[in-house]
Simulated scan of single mutants.
Amino acid sequence: MHTDVTGLLLEAAYLMAVGMFVVFLFLGALIGAMTIVAWLNKKFSDTPSQSLQMQPQVGQFNHGLSSGVIAAITAAIHQHRNK
């Protein structure tokens, strides 16, 4: 069996070029689709984007815990993080 190395290398280069082209097209289409979805989301959004930032509300999840218990939990967390 005589193998033509040049022919095999040309076929490999052709397959590599086709594969890279397909991946390039797919990624380009993906970026385009994401841009269109972001534009549509911004255009047809019900709420303005500035109001989406969450504000921390202190004491919202107190559930009847005394301030001493909350202070002890806070001190334990602080001590654990500073180890």
Rank of each mutant, 00 (worst) to 15 (best):
A72Y: 07
N82R: 14
T35H: 07
T3V: 15
A71Q: 05
S45H: 07
Q57N: 12
G7L: 15
I77K: 07
H2V: 15
G7A: 15
N62P: 00
P48H: 04
A33T: 08
P48F: 02
M20N: 12
A38C: 05
Q79D: 13
V18P: 01
M1P: 12
M1H: 12
A38V: 07
L52N: 10
L65C: 01
I36M: 07
A75H: 04
G59W: 03
K43T: 11
T47S: 06
I73N: 01
N62H: 11
M16P: 00
V58C: 01
A17I: 04
L15P: 00
L15E: 13
Q50F: 14
A33F: 10
V23D: 01
S49R: 14
Q60A: 15
L52S: 10
M1T: 12
L15D: 12
M20Y: 05
F24N: 06
V69Y: 05
Y14L: 13
W39N: 02
P56I: 03
A76C: 05
V18H: 05
S66D: 15
Q55L: 14
L9K: 12
W39V: 14
A12F: 03
K43S: 09
A13D: 07
A17W: 03
A38I: 04
A71R: 06
S45V: 02
F24V: 08
A29D: 06
V23P: 00
L30I: 02
A12V: 03
K83N: 13
T35C: 11
G19R: 11
K43N: 01
L9S: 10
A72Q: 12
L52A: 08
H63K: 14
L40E: 05
Q55K: 15
H2W: 12
R81A: 09
L40I: 06
Y14E: 13
I36S: 04
I70H: 01
P56L: 11
Y14H: 13
V22W: 02
S49Y: 09
K42T: 07
H2Y: 14
F26R: 09
I77R: 10
L9I: 08
L8T: 07
I36D: 00
V23M: 07
L27S: 06
E11L: 13
G32L: 11
Q60S: 10
V22R: 09
S66W: 01
T6H: 11
L10F: 04
T35Y: 11
A75C: 00
L10G: 01
H78V: 09
G28V: 04
V5Q: 14
I70V: 14
H2R: 15
